[in-house]
Simulated assay, not measured.
Amino acid sequence: MPDQKVAIITGASSGIGRATAISLSKAGWAIALLARRADKLQETKDLCDNPSKVLLVVGDVSKEEDVLKLFSQTVDKFGRLDMLFNNAGTASAQVPIEDTSLETFQRVISVNLVGTFLCTREAVRIFKSQSPQGGRIVNNGSISAYTPRPHSSPYTSTKHAVLGMTKSTALDGRAFNITCTQVDIGNAQTSLLPPPHGLLQGDGRRVPEATFDPKHVGEAIAHIASLPLDVTVLTFNIMATGMPFVGRG
């Protein structure tokens, strides 16, 4: 159907990616979902309103061949692309920088930054070449793109970098009807949730933190996705009301 909207969601096997897939499916979108775990991807598909409009691709965003496969299979199946949600991400334990291995640092960079670059590159190529031209990219940023937690240099560095990529993509895409948003999420109930005993704060305390249901993030992204391309939401903060961010402990 010619007016069918098509989205790609990475890291779609759980959490924010799954919630967004459910919300976009409910809104009538066709979606291509990427993650490393085939069984969890299938669970996401089963939760969507119209599984016949869901494409599953097993892969890793940090591997160029997997990203190329994702985008080519999406266009082959649905004919175009209207939105990319760069959601796949990873973090590392709160460890002082002097105790952080190069392997750990490079792993976080490969997923959070290289993966975002690879997917953005392929989406922009499609957006520029298709008719009608254009599309929307949403990047999963973080509260840490603005204010770090203690001992989080790998994760914080990548999220600051993703903010720069968001702004660059919005600028460079302007002439091609391509827009870009960064959604900065604080303490959604996902696998990256703070442990029950709390996380280390800037003042040395370890404090349990408030959380919220990731379905609200999915609904917010579905709303942004529904906007016309002459409207840009550059950054969007959504977080648990009780979490420490403004004046982080």
Rank of each mutant, 00 (worst) to 15 (best):
T100S: 03
T211S: 14
L24I: 07
T74D: 08
Q42F: 07
G28E: 11
D3Q: 14
S142Y: 04
G89N: 07
G89V: 04
R18S: 08
C48Y: 01
T166S: 08
D46H: 11
M165A: 08
G115D: 02
Q182L: 13
G17K: 02
S25L: 12
I8L: 04
G15V: 03
A188K: 00
S142E: 03
K5Q: 15
P214Q: 04
L84V: 13
T241G: 15
S142D: 07
A222W: 01
V67Y: 10
P208M: 06
S153G: 00
A225S: 12
G89T: 09
G115L: 07
Q42K: 14
T116A: 15
H151P: 00
N139V: 06
G89E: 02
V114F: 10
I16W: 02
I224Q: 03
V124F: 12
P150M: 08
N87V: 04
F78V: 03
K53L: 14
P154Y: 01
L68A: 15
Q133T: 14
S25T: 07
N112W: 02
I126E: 05
A27F: 01
T104I: 05
I178Q: 05
V111T: 15
L113W: 11
I31G: 03
F105N: 02
F85D: 05
S144H: 12
G249H: 12
M1C: 13
T232Y: 00
H216Q: 15
L199K: 12
L193Y: 02
I137L: 11
T190P: 06
T116K: 00
V114I: 15
V6Y: 00
P208Y: 03
T232Q: 14
T156C: 11
Q42G: 07
V183F: 03
V111M: 04
F117I: 08
E122S: 09
R136W: 07
G134E: 08
E98V: 14
K63T: 09
A7C: 11
G135H: 09
I238N: 00
I97N: 08
T181N: 10
P148N: 11
G141T: 09
I137D: 04
A38V: 13
S62T: 09
G247T: 05
W29G: 05
V114M: 13
A225E: 06
K40A: 14
G218A: 08
N86L: 04
I31L: 09
L234D: 12
N237V: 14
K159T: 05
Q189K: 15
C48G: 06
S92N: 12
F212P: 00
P244L: 06
G186E: 02
L47N: 12
G247H: 11
S92T: 11
A175K: 15
G79V: 11
I16L: 13
G15E: 05
N140R: 05
A225K: 04
T120G: 13
A222M: 07
I97Q: 08
P214T: 08
V75W: 10
N139K: 01
A91E: 12
L56P: 00
L33H: 06
N50M: 06
A210M: 06
G89D: 05
V54N: 00
C180V: 06
